[in-house]
Each structure stands twice: as C-alpha cells, then as structure tokens.
C-alpha cells in the first residue's frame, strides 16, 4: 500500500497520502517532510468517524468522497472499497475526489486489500 501512496504523491505532487479504515484506524501512510502524519491521520479519523457518524444518525448513508478546500491547498478523501484514501494536496483546481490519479490509486488499494485478505 505504501508504494501505491508513494506513486500517487509523485504523480500529483501531493504533500501526503494515507489510508484509513472505516472505523478511523490508520492503515498506511506516506507523507513528505513537514507534514505531521499523526495530525493527518487524526483528520482522516475525524472525517470518517465524527462526520460519518453524524451522517448515519441523520439517516443518510456514509459519504463516498470529501473535499476540504482552502486557499492554498485541499484535503481530498475518496472511498476505496472497505477503506478511505486521504490526500493532502496544493491548491490545484483539477485535483479532486474524481481525479483519475486518485481514482486509480483507490482501485489499486482495493485490489491490494483483496490480495491481503485472500
């Protein structure tokens, strides 16, 4: 999984990427210097557990993607089978949960998870 995250970081010049399980547990992470992996994992956990729980309490299904956009960067989270892929990127307009690079990495993660289980 780390290789998939490394390749993704390189492809879109991301500051970091990680995989979190649906219970908010960190599965794998790959971040550049200066990015605190624990803080990024805490953000991933808050999105999956706090926001996910409040959506379920509302009677809404869980989310398939999240994008937290700021002036000079964004956090993108996309569903990857039983997990979520979270990416920290610069303010690139074209990068979002539907970007081909992020979707491709999500598919690779699903396959890697399947292989690990079988």
């Amino acid at each position: 999984m780390k290789t998939i995250l490394q390749e993704l970081n390189g492809a879109i010049s991301a500051r970091g990427a990680l995989v979190v399980a649906r219970d908010g547990m960190l599965v794998a992470a790959e971040v550049r210097d200066g990015v605190d992996v624990e803080r990024l994992a805490a953000l991933g956990a808050a999105l999956v557990t706090d926001v996910g729980t409040s959506l379920l309490a509302t009677g809404l299904d869980g989310f398939t993607s999240v994008e937290v956009a700021a002036e000079q960067g964004k956090v993108v989270m996309a569903e990857a089978g039983p997990m979520y892929l979270l990416v920290l990127v610069g303010a690139r307009l074209e990068i979002g949960p539907g970007s081909i690079e992020i979707q491709s990495a999500a598919q690779k993660l699903i396959r890697a998870a399947d292989l690990a289980l079988n």
């Binding site: 990024l40 299904d61 964004k74 956090v75």
Partner: peptide, 18 residues
C-alpha cells in the same frame, strides 16, 4: 483539524454520497 496544515483561508467542505 484541517487548519493544522497551513493551507490558508478555508473555503468550504464538500461531501458527496448517495
């Protein structure tokens, strides 16, 4: 939590799903 990553002023958070 997202403000810990020095991304400047926040614009919005978008969630998509069913």
């Amino acid at each position: 939590q997202a403000s810990e990553f020095d991304m400047g002023k926040f614009r919005r958070c978008t969630l998509r799903g069913a």
